[in-house]
Amino acid sequence: MEPIIQESETHDRSGTHERSGTHGLPLVDSEAAEPVATRRSAGVAESSRANRGWWDGNADEYQQEHGTFLGDDRFVWGPEGLDEVEAGLLGPVEDLQDRRVLEIGAGAAQCSRWLAAQGARPVALDLSHRQLQHALRIDDLLNRDHTVGLVQADAGGLPFADGSFDLACSAYGALPFVADAELVLREVRRVLRPGGRFVFSVSHPIRWAFPDEPGPEGLSISASYFDRVPYVEQDEQGRAVYVEHHRTIGDWVRDVVAGGFRLVDLVEPEWPAWNTQEWGGWSPLRGGLIPGTAIFVCERQETATG
């Protein structure tokens, strides 16, 4: 596979400034003031635009901070550390051979790199060009051929033909950040072959009722679980620079069904004793009391109309 990041659409990076960095890539620097956090509505286009800019600007820091935990070619479903090697949510490892797999919100393609090592034929898709640059960087550091196809695109408009993939997956990628989850699910169903499986993980909805703190201060309910108003960070002009959307468990189930899938399993990983790492609001303290991740195991539902 040629080491080319295919872009499904052009985008303007004129507002960023680049300089030499320590990651083998130029660092993206921003002169913008610190954004202000609020709760307000944010539509499909605004959410996509804001999150593309945020991940382009924060990919360096994210990979530097979490790269060791994520590994270079490991498939981990969330901060608890549940590994696909143990979970087998995509199916038996031996069945991955020659399977076409789409990873959505792939970041630096760590999961796709693991899939390729199992004999699968993965494509790693991400909204952020910068994240995919890190995928190329890791390949170069490993002195490894570029066995994973890299595509920059929005999950709401997948640039693939119907029935292109056998499996799809997303580990905290795309779905928490999109305004229309049903649209994305329908797109995933479209590019899956009949009987195809889609497994995705998101921040567990119950966490939205608690402060995003890893210590004791994060154990008291501070908001309504049913408040679905998006979390938005915005600049001085009121333009969103980061957006995350909240859905309840019931909302997710309804979106999965409306998107054309059958829900096979809902996995809530328990915090393992070996994991002593804190990751934002995730921690051993909180993880031992409330779930931090929800993993939805879905299969393409066939209907009379296809």
Rank of each mutant, 00 (worst) to 15 (best):
G15D: 05
G15E: 04
G15P: 01
G15L: 03
T16C: 12
T16R: 12
H17D: 09
H17S: 13
R19T: 12
G21C: 07
G21E: 05
L25R: 03
P26A: 08
L27D: 15
V28T: 11
D29T: 15
D29C: 10
S30L: 14
A32M: 10
A33C: 07
P35A: 06
V36C: 04
V36I: 10
R39T: 11
R40Y: 07
S41G: 14
A42Y: 00
A42K: 00
G43I: 05
V44H: 05
A45E: 09
A45C: 01
E46V: 04
S47P: 03
S48R: 09
R49C: 11
N51I: 04
G57W: 01
D60S: 09
Y62G: 00
Q63D: 14
Q63S: 10
Q63P: 04
E65C: 10
G67M: 08
G67I: 08
F69G: 02
F69Q: 02
F69I: 06
F69E: 07
L70F: 15
L70T: 11
L70A: 12
L70P: 03
L70Q: 13
G71Q: 10
G71L: 10
D73H: 14
D73M: 13
R74V: 07
R74Y: 04
V76Y: 01
W77Q: 05
G78H: 03
